[in-house]
């Protein structure tokens, strides 16, 4: 069995073999593998006895359930109005330059994916970004670059 198959079986075991478990199972795979591969989606379909189209249909609806390969660390910079007003463009530009990628792309070493996100719920402390599940409010370009550097060192 591949590691993906083992993971899916574990997640299905933990959450139960019902349709209602589909979200936690998909979330669990993304947590471990950073995206949903074709293999993972097919495996989920088999384990939960759903059609592959149903599983893909659900997965592709949700922004956080990526179906294309992503880096180990997913950076999401909030782009909604207040963060826009407080300078999210500069943050995105600085991160893009440092990582040498554009929004939507992944670095060659597969360490980082740079994305934007709709309102992250920190409008009073913008600009703000999520790195994986961790939140970083009150950003400056300097701060954003330092945070990324920490992740690059694999400290976090």
């Amino acid at each position: 069995m591949s590691t993906t198959e083992v993971l899916v079986k574990e997640l299905v075991e933990k959450n139960g073999k019902t349709r209602n478990s589909l979200m936690p199972v998909l979330q669990g795979i993304v947590h471990n593998e950073h995206f949903l591969s074709e293999e993972a989606l097919l495996c989920v379909a088999r384990e939960l006895d759903l059609s592959a189209a149903d599983v893909y249909g659900t997965a592709s609806f949700y922004t956080f359930l990526d179906t294309v390969p992503r880096g180990k660390n997913i950076v999401r910079v909030c782009k909604t109005i207040t963060c826009h007003m407080k300078g999210k463009d500069e943050i995105i530009k600085a991160l893009g330059n440092a990582l040498k990628i554009k929004v939507g792309e992944t670095t060659n070493d597969k360490k980082f994916t740079l994305l934007t996100a709709n309102c992250l719920g920190w409008c009073h402390k913008g600009p703000v970004m999520l790195v994986n599940d961790d939140i970083y409010p009150d950003l400056t370009t300097q701060k954003a670059l330092e945070i990324i550097e920490e992740y690059a060192k694999d400290v976090k």
Binding site: L22, F61, T63
Partner: peptide, 18 residues
């Protein structure tokens, strides 16, 4: 998993139902 529309109550149920 990052969908604004799931704040709409019936969409939220759909999401909980996988």
């Amino acid at each position: 998993s990052g969908a604004y529309v799931c704040g709409e109550e019936s969409a939220l149920f759909e999401s909980m139902e996988g």
